[in-house]
């Protein structure tokens, strides 16, 4: 279970580029649940995921993952518990190294980096068996540099790598956004398959309302660094794409109202 309390993060504070990306986010994710995070551009949804993954240090607030306070853990230490798939298909794998070597690293995530040969025959067979399940024909190309594969293939492999050792939390950051529609659907289907089969706890940032309605069992909507809507259980079961879009329009209207009112007041009083 993931508990986030009053999490705040401001980028470049005190400058003109100051962005208050997270403004006291409090959130609890139950074990075995699959949560979609949606929101407008700059709403802080990717920042939230990166904060959990440890890409940067949060300014204040705390994070607890299955009883362990991870707030001050460095990124690589959190990776022992957390699997990640990035938006950029090239971010999750080392392009210059072979498929087998990439997966070999994922197979030892969080274990000691010993002086044993990484890709032995036994490891190769294990990799080959599991890669076969992707049905992409990649099991015959294990010794090719992973950089020679397409974005979709690399994203599928990254997903496989992130879940090879069952993570306590899987973070998906718009992992289908950079793919063509057909590949995106395939990777989304693969995601659903793996999460249900392994009973994973997962968070997924997405821009696709359809995906948010189809895949997860909970939807949270973020706006201006905070959670504004939370569709759970029955509410989520009833939620349709149109409901989400309505909610979007509502927060955007509120936004418009805010700025126009501010302008009005400014004209009157300044």
């Amino acid at each position: 279970m993931l508990k986030i309390k009053e999490l705040c993060k401001t980028f470049s504070p005190g400058t003109v580029n100051e962005v208050r990306a997270l403004r006291g986010v409090t959130l609890e994710i139950q074990e075995g649940s699959f949560t979609a995070v949606i929101g407008t551009n700059g709403s802080g949804k990717s920042t939230l995921l990166n904060a959990v993954a440890g890409s940067f240090e949060a300014d204040s607030g705390s994070m607890e993952l299955f009883g362990r306070i991870i707030t001050n853990w460095p990124e690589h230490k959190r990776a022992l518990l957390i699997g990640r798939v990035f938006q950029n298909p090239f971010a999750g794998t080392a392009a210059g190294m072979t498929i087998a070597e990439n997966i070999g690293m994922a197979m030892r995530r969080g274990q000691r980096w010993s002086l044993r040969t990484a890709i032995t025959k036994r490891v190769r067979e294990e990799i080959s068996d599991k890669v076969k399940t992707l049905k992409m024909g990649l099991e015959d190309r294990l010794d090719n540099p992973i950089g020679t594969l397409s974005g979709g293939q690399r994203q599928a492999l990254t997903l496989l790598m992130a879940t090879w050792l069952k993570p306590q939390l899987l973070l998906l950051d718009e992992h289908t956004a950079a793919l063509d529609p057909k590949t995106a659907a395939k990777v989304a289907e693969l995601t659903r398959e793996i999460i249900t089969r392994e009973k994973l706890t997962a968070m997924m940032v997405t821009h696709s309302m359809q995906q948010a309605v189809d895949l997860p069992d909970r939807i949270i909507m973020m706006h201006k660094g905070n959670i504004v809507e939370d569709y759970k259980d029955e509410m989520k079961a009833r939620a349709r794409v149109s409901d989400l879009i309505k909610a979007f329009e509502r927060v955007q209207k509120l936004d418009l109202f805010d700025s126009s009112v501010a302008e009005l007041l400014e004209q009157q009083y300044v």
Binding site: E75, H76, F90, A162
Partner: peptide, 14 residues
């Protein structure tokens, strides 16, 4: 070797 190749990926692998 991976560290030079893709630091982000390397950190994500712990």
């Amino acid at each position: 070797r991976a560290s030079g190749n893709n630091p982000q990926m390397v950190r994500a692998q712990g």
